[in-house]
Write a protein that binds this DNA or RNA. Structure first.
Lengths: 155, 155
DNA sequence: TTGACAATGAGAACGACTCTTATTACGATT
DNA sequence: AATCGTAATAAGAGTCGTTCTCATTGTCAA
């Protein structure tokens, strides 16, 4: 995808950074993932990457606005492509297993959030962006819980 | 506030936990704070608390649904009273200094979030709650940045 | 008072992440 | 193509928030 390379290199250059093979493969790994990845998942998918390089390069790519560090209740971070390279979206977070899935954008939500942010007085806060997480259970964890309840109730 | 004590004890009992002096003072510290507190802020305010006890008791209180662990981009957690003891609310997070402030509930936002969550198919996700953070700049950081820009442009 | 068990606190252990440093790769200049 | 300056890399040590361990203390019930 040479077009993406253009965007990426253009974002890196002002920071005095290059688009190196490591960084290219990090971006490719994140692009091919269906959900935000942990460092360990990234290491699995990119054989031969040094952990310190992965951390360093993800930091660089984040500063360039190309990668977004996703914060969850897990005690480690996850990474995904920034919205400039994908689409604005939010997250579904399973409180059972910690799974993070992308949630499709909802026009009504975005409209009302835009309105709320625009209506905020500058002497209170100057909004730039927003993040929405819906917490709940993924289908697997719902099933797991149902089975556990049945086992208890039935025995 | 003996009424709160009732609620608190009732939430703790099913877990086989008591409302101890430590836990009472933790709740009081959180209640008297205007924003979610870090462990260190809690230790400052509650002289004589052991750090390990603070961590342990906050975990217990969180399991009892009385305290909420707030996740930010800072690399440490913050704690606040759970919504059962306060009000449903969201957060303004300053990307300059990390300050977290409560954002008053907006009826339109809640309505549309409720609708989105209710409309989610069960084979995709079973929503339980949501979290919204508005990222941006607090007035102090806006000023700081303006001064910095002026100094550069004017000098 | 005594027994059972929860609560406490000091510090060790854990793990995610960052920093240090020596080495290697790249781009521009001759 | 050789050289030089700088960015990039990787291994491992270091940092620090958080959790675990365990010996001791507090609390409730009989």
């Amino acid at each position: 995808m040479p077009e993406v390379d253009q965007i990426v290199a253009a974002r890196l250059r002002p920071l005095g950074q290059r688009l190196t093979p490591r960084r290219r493969s990090l971006l490719e790994i994140l692009r091919s993932a269906r959900h935000p990845l942990t460092i360990h998942e990234i290491l699995e998918r990119g054989r031969g990457l040094a952990m310190s390089s992965v951390y360093r390069n993800l930091t660089v790519l984040e500063q360039a606005g190309l990668v977004h560090r996703v914060i969850t209740r897990e005690d480690f971070a996850r990474y995904e492509l920034a919205e400039e390279l994908t689409e604005h979206h939010h997250h579904l977070i399973c409180s059972g297993c910690g799974l993070v899935r992308d949630m499709p954008t909802d026009v009504r939500v975005e409209r009302v959030m835009r309105s709320v942010m625009a209506g905020m007085p500058a002497d209170v806060f100057t909004p730039q962006s927003h993040r929405i997480d819906v917490m709940g259970m993924c289908p697997d964890c719902v099933q797991r819980r149902e089975r556990a309840t049945q086992a208890k109730g039935g025995g």
